[in-house]
Computed example of a mutant assay.
Amino acid sequence: MEDRTNPPAWLTEPEAAHHLRVSPDTLRRWRREGTGPDWHRAGGRLIRYRLTEVDAWVTGSGEAAR
């Protein structure tokens, strides 16, 4: 069962897409175009999103908000 009282600090691509209510393909396109939330590469190939940065992007208060 998912713990909603203590969400993870880092989100996988599918988790971030779910959080934003978009498809993973949309999130990938935003990443390519540089229009989505900030993302980070972990271990060379893994893409991760910091939950606080995703939320800041949604509200327009993050650096990635363009």
Rank of each mutant, 00 (worst) to 15 (best):
M1P: 02
M1W: 00
E2Q: 13
E2G: 03
E2F: 13
D3N: 14
D3K: 04
D3A: 10
R4I: 12
T5H: 02
T5N: 09
T5M: 02
T5P: 00
T5W: 00
N6S: 13
N6Y: 00
N6W: 00
P7K: 00
P7Y: 00
P7I: 05
P8Y: 11
P8V: 13
P8Q: 12
P8N: 13
A9T: 14
W10D: 09
W10H: 02
L11W: 01
L11M: 11
L11C: 10
L11P: 03
L11F: 02
T12A: 07
E13F: 02
E13I: 03
P14T: 06
A16L: 07
A16K: 04
A17P: 05
H18A: 15
H18R: 13
H18Y: 10
H19P: 01
H19N: 05
H19C: 11
L20D: 03
R21F: 04
V22F: 03
V22N: 03
S23K: 10
S23I: 08
S23G: 14
D25L: 12
D25S: 15
T26G: 06
T26H: 10
L27G: 09
L27Q: 09
R28Y: 08
R28N: 08
R28Q: 11
R29W: 08
W30K: 07
R31S: 08
R32G: 07
E33I: 05
G34Q: 05
G36V: 07
P37Q: 04
P37N: 04
W39N: 10
R41Q: 14
R41P: 07
A42R: 12
A42V: 15
G44Y: 04
G44P: 06
R45D: 11
R45K: 15
R45L: 09
L46G: 09
L46W: 04
L46A: 15
I47E: 01
I47H: 03
R48G: 02
R48A: 04
Y49N: 08
Y49H: 10
Y49S: 05
R50P: 00
R50L: 11
L51S: 06
L51R: 15
L51D: 02
L51P: 00
L51F: 03
L51M: 06
T52C: 11
T52A: 14
E53P: 01
V54L: 09
V54Q: 05
V54D: 01
D55Y: 00
D55I: 08
D55A: 11
D55C: 06
A56Y: 02
A56I: 07
A56V: 07
A56H: 04
W57Y: 09
V58E: 07
V58T: 09
V58F: 01
V58Y: 00
T59N: 06
T59S: 13
G60L: 03
S61F: 06
S61M: 08
S61D: 08
G62L: 03
G62T: 04
G62P: 01
E63F: 08
E63H: 10
A64R: 09
A64H: 08
A64C: 01
A65W: 02
A65D: 00
A65T: 03
R66G: 09
R66F: 01
R66A: 11
